[in-house]
Nucleic acid binder design. Structure first.
Lengths: 204, 204
DNA sequence: CACTATTATGAGCTTTTGCTCAGGTATTGG
DNA sequence: CCAATACCTGAGCAAAAGCTCATAATAGTG
């Protein structure tokens, strides 16, 4: 049971390479274990075992279980926002191409481990500060998308703000589903339909 | 930590009214506690406490914690499918009205306790049997929706099967979001946009 | 009312899990 | 080569949570 506002700082900062390596091993193992068993059943001992290090070492670098999840979330968000910054210059073009870029970006952004992402977002109880950061990133993304659509001449919806909220969420969640059940149908097919849906909606 | 394939049958079946009442109290309390604290932190002792019964009584009717969540899920699914059966005769009409009926149905179906539903769907690891039941119910619903759209003259999409999957999922998830964060915007507004998106998509 | 079946109780046993700490091993710097 | 520092180990502690069982209370029955 993760609880907000706990100590998240490590008790020891790595100074040698092997320490950095151990830290990475822990995080990689944690990502694997959390996404496989969920947060509650992803015990610290299991993580240590999977990382092939002792439980003691784990607690050298993370003060508690929550801190591990928090670190994973921070890493994901950092990676995500970095991608977004590069994605902006894809704005001009036909409406469909813009939507397609948006969908592709979402898909790419979740290829690694959708299970883990779900757990981080939905099971984690983080500090207010961390949650604010996430919210800000999300809002920033929505605003970014909004601007692109606001400029485009083909866009024709009653309420752009709500439309963008709806679209971003829909694309995001369908991406999750796609990544979580990869066997059912081809990714391109779903991508096409998703693009169609959003494009037709925006055109009015 | 819910694990699949465990005993779900009660060790005692109620034969008196007060027993049935106790069972209901447990389920009601469990729904409340799970949706408030999550599955992991929703302890059986807390459930018993909230139901104002002893922990011993709880284990008279449920062999373990998982069985309680499973029962809640079964009840939800049953209620849902019952509603669906009545919903079928809403088929004819304009495409928009059909879509609106679909969206309304989804919204109504999740008014009670979206938090709980989320937990059931996302934190529960159920037996294969139970999961099959859920899947079957879902597939049935998709097929139903598919039939309605297949008959409608205004529908024009490349791949109806994938389109219906996409639509049902999108409507479902947006409904979850709507119910989980009720404060942001008016329900009707989002409903309208959601209906617009789906309708325009289907029209092509 | 007496007798049995059913239901309710809750202290506490058992297991699980987050986490500590005393004591080792590797690495670095002089 | 030898301290000093950094790093690693894992048995086991304390707390929490799932669950049991002996016993008590209540409801049905003739």
């Amino acid at each position: 049971m993760p609880s907000a506002d706990r100590q998240l700082e490590p008790r020891r900062k790595p100074r040698q390479v092997r320490a950095e390596l151990t830290r990475d091993r822990i995080l990689t193992a944690a990502a694997h274990v959390f996404s496989e068993h969920g947060y509650a059943a992803g015990t610290t001992n299991r993580i240590a075992e999977h990382a092939r290090i002792s439980i003691g070492s784990l607690y050298q670098y993370f003060p508690n279980k929550d801190a591990i999840l928090a670190e994973l979330l921070v890493r994901h968000v950092d990676r995500g926002s970095w991608k977004q910054a590069e994605e902006v210059d894809l704005s001009p073009g036909t409406l469909e191409s813009v939507v397609r870029a948006l969908v592709r970006d979402a898909i790419d952004n979740h290829r690694d481990d959708p299970q883990l992402l779900r757990i981080m977002v939905e099971e984690g109880r983080f500090s207010q500060e961390l949650r604010d950061t996430i919210t800000r990133h999300g809002a920033q993304r929505v605003a970014q998308v909004r601007d692109v659509f606001a400029r485009h001449p083909d866009v024709n919806v009653r309420n752009l703000d709500i439309a963008v909220d709806l679209i971003v969420f829909t694309v995001e969640l369908n991406t999750h589903r796609l990544a979580a059940f990869p066997q059912t149908v081809a990714v391109e097919t779903v991508e096409n339909e998703l693009v169609d849906m959003v494009t037709r909606y925006l055109r009015g």
